[in-house]
Amino acid sequence: MNNLARRTFLIAAGMLFAGPLLADDRLGKVRPRVGFLSPVSPGKRDKAFVSGMEALGWIPGDTIDIDLRFAEGQPARLPGLVDELLALKPDVLVAGSTIGARAAIEAEASVPIVFAGSSDPVAAGLVKNLRHPGGNITGFSLAYGDGFAGKWLQLLKETVPELRHVALIWSSSNPAARRFVEEVSRVAAKLQIQLEVYHAKDRTELDAALSSVESSGVGGFIVAPSPFAVSERKLLVAFSDRNRLPAIYFSESFPDDGGLMSYGPDIPDVYRRAAAHVDRILKGADPGELPVERPNKFDLVVNLRAAEAIGVTIPVSLLLRANRVID
C-alpha cells in the first residue's frame, strides 16, 4: 500500500469509528429533555400531555426525552421529585397544579416552568398577571373564578330539590381551596341549606371527616378541588355509594370511577394544551412573555348507573345540559 492509499485508509477508518460518536454528540445537543411533575398518580393527565407533545412532532425517545415523576397524592414528596428532575437537566419543567409549581419555584429552578392546572395562579403568587406572567414561568389555569364553586351546590340542589343539609370536604393541598369554602358557604346561606365543612389533607383526616359526615345526617356532599382528593377518589366514591349520598365532584375522573356527577374544566385537555407552551419555549420563546391560558372546556358529567345505585332520579333538564352521560 503506497503512502497516499495508506493515508486515505486511515482517514476513512478514523471517520468510521468517529462517526457514531459525532452522531451521538449531535443527537445529545438537538434532542431536548422535559421534566414532568405530577402531584397525583399516573393517568389521563400525563397521557394527555405526552399525546399533545406527539401531536406537535415531539416523540419520546426519538425527538425528545420526557422524564415523568408522580407524587401519588402526597405533597411532601414534591420537593424531592423536583430535585430528581432538575438533576437530569431538563430544558423545560412541567409542573402539575399549584403545589407542583410552588415546589419548582421553591427549588429556585432557573429552567423554564410550565404549570398545568393551577386553580388561581395570580392569587397563589405563581405569576404577576395572566397576560405577562414574568420570570421563567407560564402555564394554564383551571379558571375556578368567582362564583364557580357555588355552582356545585346549585347543581346538587337541582338534582335533589329537597336537599337541606350538605357537607363540603376540602383540602389545603390546594392553596385556592379556602375561597371555594367561602363561595359555597355564601350560596348555602342564600339557598337556606345547612353546610358542614370538613378539612382533609391526608388519609387520617379524611377518614375522620367521612366518619363525621356519616353520622351527621347530611343529604349530600361536595368535594372541592385538590390533588389529594383526586388520589382518594375511589374511597370518596365508595363512601357515597355505601351511604347512598348524592355527591358532586370537580373532575370527570370521579364519575368515571362510579361517582354521581362532576362539573369543572376538562383537566386532561389543559395538560394536552400545555404541550403547546413547551413547544414554543423549546423553539426559543420567553416563558415570562407567554400568557397564562384558561380552559376551553367546562364539562358537566352525569353517571346514571351511580344515580340508580343510590336511588336518585336525575332531572331531564340537567341531563339535557350534560356534556356526557354515563349509562
Rank of each mutant, 00 (worst) to 15 (best):
E108G: 11
S119Q: 02
D120P: 05
A123I: 01
A124G: 04
G125Y: 14
V127E: 05
H132P: 00
P133R: 12
G134T: 02
G134W: 00
N136R: 14
N136S: 09
I137E: 10
T138N: 05
T138V: 03
G145H: 09
G145R: 14
D146L: 07
G147T: 06
G150D: 00
K151G: 01
L155T: 08
L156A: 03
V160T: 13
P161R: 09
R164C: 02
H165G: 07
V166N: 10
V166Y: 10
S172R: 15
S172H: 11
P175W: 14
A177S: 15
R178T: 10
F180E: 03
V184K: 07
S185P: 03
S185G: 05
R186E: 11
K190I: 01
L191Y: 07
L191R: 12
Q192V: 09
I193F: 13
I193Y: 13
I193D: 06
E196M: 08
E196W: 01
V197T: 13
A200D: 01
D202L: 04
D202G: 07
E205G: 10
L206V: 08
D207Q: 14
A208R: 13
A208H: 11
A209R: 06
L210D: 00
L210K: 06
L210G: 03
S212T: 14
S212M: 06
S215R: 15
F221W: 14
V223D: 04
A224Y: 06
A224M: 00
A224G: 00
P227T: 04
P227Q: 02
A229R: 06
A229Q: 12
L235Y: 05
L236W: 13
A238V: 03
A238D: 13
A238I: 06
F239I: 01
S240D: 03
S240G: 11
D241R: 15
A247W: 12
